[in-house]
Design a protein around this nucleic acid. Structure first.
Lengths: 259, 259
DNA sequence: GCATTTCATTGATCTGGGTCAATGTGCGAC
DNA sequence: GTCGCACATTGACCCAGATCAATGAAATGC
């Protein structure tokens, strides 16, 4: 039994940190603003917006802006959890591995996602960039100090955690009880809704590989592919290219996602 | 395709609330203590222990002690989420249902478990007592006032949510990628560890039905039963009666839970 | 006591989705 | 261009676990 949809690439590859705060000169410039948090285009979607504008320097002091290339791993399951992350651009996959290589992707993270909430001393999952990722790295101690000083931030994190728990329960239902067709249909619907920008869209971006979708839905690459082909044959979706799907008939897709 | 391991019983049955605080007379008695929180035998395992002894009257004022009989439902998916719950005795199952009756149990809750963290206006899951449950019911508004006044409580809830998220990810791995044998073995191990009292025990209590285990592990009753029988035949476990399992060979059970 | 109900176990058979294998289909390098 | 590589798709076949069907084994009622 071989379930490995992972390519043999570089697990746990570590990535250089680019600390914009300390690198920045006194006068702001277009490339490297004096205060990365003030100019942050992900502030609207991020938990950090619980911190008022007047305290942005304090926030900026606690974080480091980092860039991750596709395929690179920036969190490794089992390693010491010494930092938290807020994704401000790009997309990543979060996953757990078994000893024999079986993989379960537990979620995809996009702009505004906060990672690393684990209480434990070590990370419970790994995270790898799909598209180029820009993220803010918060050393553990600094984040805790922020949490102590800004109760609103803690409240925001609690809300996030609760939302993720609800999503996790929905995913358990999918993995435990849905058919392959229902899983793929549910996934397409969820991706349409979860798009970083606003309301549901007919054109869904799928930056991840088929193998990633398979490992997220508890299926094989072949079943994902066949199911997409069948949905297309039924006129429910179109597949202009490998990374995009057009939802032609959202109502029938919704029905396909349930019984 | 029929997956329904639910018996046709009374969904959404509501339960009378016994408010001990207001019912209690001025002088404490053995049956109905003046301050239920001061005498709470679940305080050690509960989030409320973030609130110092000196504020226990305030805590007691915010909650109602309630008793739920086995089979009765005290949270119903989709209903208005107007309260939170802390279980102080007994055990319950948490689950999501599909329109055709397919059910996924997302977890079992025992003493110390805090339920209802959903941000949304409605509950994302249902909860039904397995053994007689005693719980503290916190009206939404009162809990929020507590949270505002006791940051330590909020921190505790955040820790709980993070822990549950980690457990949910582990369960996704189980549901998405493990074989029936691995699932049952993982479940038995987890139950041995999650016992309300202290460290792992060889004798594991299984108060839930086989159908509940099946709906938790994404299997059928028959597969759960056959798998338990096989583990017994191999000398890994003993099954003195339907509600208990003795782990004879924890090491081999651990191996059975992985590859 | 016996009848009834509920739940668990066991066996026989079936099937959705996994496995194995071959065939597209870009896309970057040269 | 065309070679090579990485993915995705498609087809043939198989098997773990679901389904269907009895049969045990406790618990409850009368």
């Amino acid at each position: 039994m071989i379930w490995v949809n992972v390519r043999p690439a570089l697990p746990g590859l570590r990535v250089g940190v680019q600390n914009r705060v300390s690198m920045t000169s006194a006068e702001p410039s277009r490339q490297a603003p004096a205060d990365p948090c003030a100019d942050c285009d992900a502030r609207g979607e991020s938990v950090c917006n619980a911190i008022g504008d007047e305290f942005l320097p304090r926030l900026a002091e606690a974080t480091q802006v980092t860039h991750i290339e596709p395929g690179q791993c920036f969190i490794t399951e089992g390693e010491k959890a010494d930092a938290f992350f807020n994704i401000t651009a790009g997309s990543a996959k979060l996953y757990k591995l078994m000893a024999d290589g079986r993989r379960q992707i537990t979620g995809f993270a996009v702009r505004g996602h906060f990672l690393g909430l684990a209480v434990s001393a070590t990370y419970a999952f790994s995270a790898e960039a799909i598209e180029p990722v820009r993220l803010c790295r918060f050393p553990r101690a600094k984040l805790f100090r922020l949490l102590a000083d800004f109760p609103a931030l803690e409240r925001r994190l609690l809300e996030r955690a609760a939302t993720e728990l609800v999503a996790a329960q929905e995913q358990m239902l999918l993995l435990g009880r849905k058919t392959a067709r229902e899983r793929v249909a549910s996934f397409l619907r969820a991706q349409a809704l979860a798009a970083p920008c606003g309301r549901p869209r007919a054109m869904v971006a799928l930056p991840m590989r088929r193998g990633d979708i398979a490992d997220y839905l508890g299926l094989t690459i072949e079943t994902v592919s066949r199911t997409l082909t069948r949905l297309r044959a039924e006129g429910i979706i179109e597949i202009p290219d490998q990374t995009r799907v057009l939802l032609r008939d959202p109502a029938r897709l919704a029905r396909a996602a349930e019984g």
